[in-house]
Amino acid sequence: MGLLLMLRPPQPRPKSLRRATRAQRREHRRADAEEWGTAQQRGWLLDVEVEKLLLLVDNAGGSRLPILGQIDPWSDTVLSRRELSQLEADIDRLEAVAGDDTQRELVTAMRKLLMNWRAEPDLMLHCYGD
């Protein structure tokens, strides 16, 4: 299971593809794939293993963390710039309890994503759970 963290511009309310033609559905998937590929090239995409993140969050204080302690890794969440400083504080707490190289790599990757977010003020952090 994974939690996908992606920096994206604010998204309009998703339209239902329930009555779309096959061509419209195919075009929608193609556009998503292109956007996700571009995000990955820019460093705006991070795929996190839920178990590793949950273990680290639990060791850092669990639900007492203002942002990471409240994210449900099995549903979608969108974070705005207002929450960036709190999220950085959560990452600091994760870094303090990271016990092995895998956990430290995860913290480093999350810090890099936040640095990219700080450089792009118009983006929001979308968290897509499994």
Rank of each mutant, 00 (worst) to 15 (best):
L106H: 00
L114K: 04
R81V: 01
E34R: 15
W44Y: 15
N116S: 11
L55W: 07
R13V: 08
E95H: 15
L68P: 03
A109Y: 04
A98E: 13
R29I: 01
D32S: 05
W117S: 03
R8C: 09
R29S: 12
L53D: 03
E105K: 11
L46Y: 13
G62F: 05
P73L: 13
R64K: 09
A39F: 11
A109S: 10
P10C: 08
Q103V: 12
R29C: 02
W44I: 02
R25S: 00
R30S: 01
R64W: 12
S63V: 15
H28E: 04
R13W: 13
W117R: 01
V97W: 06
G61Y: 04
Q11I: 02
W74Q: 10
R22A: 02
G62Y: 01
V48P: 02
P14D: 06
T21G: 14
L55Q: 11
H28L: 08
L55V: 05
W44M: 13
G69K: 01
M115Y: 13
P10D: 03
G69T: 12
V107S: 02
K112R: 15
S16M: 12
E34N: 11
R118F: 12
L68R: 00
D72Y: 05
L53T: 00
Q86G: 10
A33K: 06
R111D: 05
R19C: 09
Q11K: 10
L56E: 10
I67Y: 00
G61F: 09
W74Y: 12
S80W: 04
M115A: 15
D92I: 12
G62C: 07
V107T: 09
R25L: 01
M115F: 13
L87P: 00
V48C: 06
R104W: 08
Q103I: 13
L94G: 06
L46H: 09
G43D: 14
Q11D: 02
W74N: 15
V97N: 03
E27Y: 02
R64L: 14
S85W: 11
Q40N: 08
G69M: 03
T77R: 14
A60K: 06
N59S: 15
E105Y: 07
S85T: 03
A89R: 07
W117K: 07
D47C: 05
G37R: 13
Q11W: 09
D76R: 10
T108R: 12
T77M: 10
A89I: 07
E27N: 06
S63W: 06
A33H: 09
L79T: 00
T108V: 04
V50I: 15
A96P: 09
P12Y: 11
L94V: 14
E35I: 04
R29A: 11
L87D: 00
